[in-house]
Lab assay of single mutants.
Amino acid sequence: KELVLALYDYQEKSPREVTMKKGDILTLLNSTNKDWWKVEVNGRQGFVPAAYVKKL
């Protein structure tokens, strides 16, 4: 599985998104969309802005 690092805090704005804190390590589930990547964090799956994370 591929991991990404949260570069910034992000507060979810819809049920399809997830909240993350700067420094969190997230599991990358899908990065086919250039703007929104699907990740898993704390057992929850959802989208975060691709610009807010970096592949490890």
Rank of each mutant, 00 (worst) to 15 (best):
L3M: 12
V48M: 01
I25W: 05
L3S: 08
K1D: 09
A51N: 13
F47M: 09
V41T: 13
N42L: 11
L5G: 03
S31N: 09
S31W: 10
F47L: 09
T27M: 11
Y52Q: 05
T32V: 11
E2P: 12
W36G: 01
V53R: 00
K38E: 15
M20Q: 02
V4D: 00
K22M: 09
M20W: 02
V53N: 00
L29Q: 04
V41L: 15
L7M: 11
E2N: 12
I25M: 07
V18Y: 04
Q11N: 14
K34L: 10
L7H: 03
A6N: 01
F47E: 04
W36R: 03
E12K: 14
K13V: 10
V53S: 01
V18S: 02
K55F: 10
K13I: 08
L26R: 01
Q45Y: 11
K54V: 15
E40A: 09
Y52R: 06
V48E: 00
P49A: 02
K38C: 12
K54E: 12
P49D: 02
T32L: 10
P15K: 11
P49E: 01
N33F: 09
K54W: 10
E17V: 05
E17L: 06
K1I: 14
V39F: 01
D24M: 15
N30M: 10
E40H: 05
K38G: 06
S31F: 08
V41D: 07
R44N: 07
S14C: 09
L7N: 03
Y10K: 01
S14T: 12
K1M: 13
E17Q: 12
G43D: 08
W36C: 06
D35W: 15
V41F: 15
E2Y: 13
K21R: 13
E40D: 09
W36I: 03
D9N: 10
F47Y: 14
G46E: 02
L5Y: 15
A51F: 09
R16N: 15
E2A: 11
G43Y: 06
Q11G: 08
E12W: 06
S31G: 12
A51Q: 13
Y8N: 09
N33I: 06
W37R: 02
K38L: 15
L56D: 03
D24W: 14
I25Q: 05
K34S: 13
R44I: 08
K54P: 01
N42P: 10
Q45G: 07
D24G: 04
Y10W: 11
T27Q: 12
Y10P: 01
V4L: 14
Y10R: 03
S31L: 05
R16S: 12
A50V: 06
S31Q: 10
R16W: 15
E2S: 11
W36V: 03
N33P: 05
A6V: 11
S31C: 10
Y52W: 07
V4N: 01
V39E: 00
L28Y: 02
L56R: 03
Y8S: 09
K38Q: 13
E17N: 06
K34T: 12
P49C: 03
D35K: 14
E40R: 07
E12N: 08
V53G: 01
K13Y: 05
L5I: 15
R16M: 14
N42V: 07
Y8I: 11
I25R: 06
S14E: 09
T32H: 13
D9P: 06
D24V: 05
K55A: 09
Q45F: 09
Q11H: 14
L3Y: 15
W37D: 01
K21D: 04
S31A: 13
Y10H: 04
K38N: 07
V53E: 00
D35E: 14
K13S: 12
E40N: 05
I25H: 05
Y52I: 07
N30H: 08
G23E: 02
K1F: 15
A51P: 08
G46A: 04
E2K: 10
Y10E: 00
K21E: 06
G43I: 03
Y52T: 07
A51I: 11
A51S: 13
V4K: 01
Q45P: 07
D24F: 05
Y8L: 11
Y10A: 01
V48R: 00
W37H: 03
V4H: 03
K34I: 10
E2G: 12
K21A: 09
P15Q: 10
G23T: 02
I25C: 06
V53A: 03
Y8M: 12
Y8P: 00
V4P: 00
K34A: 14
P15V: 09
A50I: 03
V18L: 15
L28V: 06
K38S: 08
K34R: 12
D9A: 08
K22E: 07
P15Y: 11
P49V: 02
Q11E: 14
G43K: 06
S14L: 09
K38T: 10
K21Y: 13
S31D: 15
L29F: 04
N33V: 05
K21W: 11
V18E: 01
S14K: 08
L29T: 05
K22T: 08
L7Y: 04
M20S: 01
K13H: 10
E2H: 12
V18R: 02
A51E: 09
N30T: 08
L7V: 07
T19S: 15
V39Y: 00
N30V: 09
G23W: 06
A6L: 02
F47V: 07
K54N: 06
L56P: 03
D24R: 03
N30L: 10
V41I: 15
G23N: 07
E17H: 07
T19I: 03
R44M: 08
N42C: 10
L26I: 08
K22W: 04
Q45T: 14
T27L: 14
T27I: 15
A51M: 12
D24Q: 15
L7D: 02
L28I: 05
K1H: 14
D24I: 05
S14R: 10
E40I: 08
V4W: 09
D35M: 15
L5D: 01
K22P: 03
L5M: 14
E12F: 07
E12L: 09
I25F: 07
A50K: 06
K1Q: 12
E2W: 15
L26P: 02
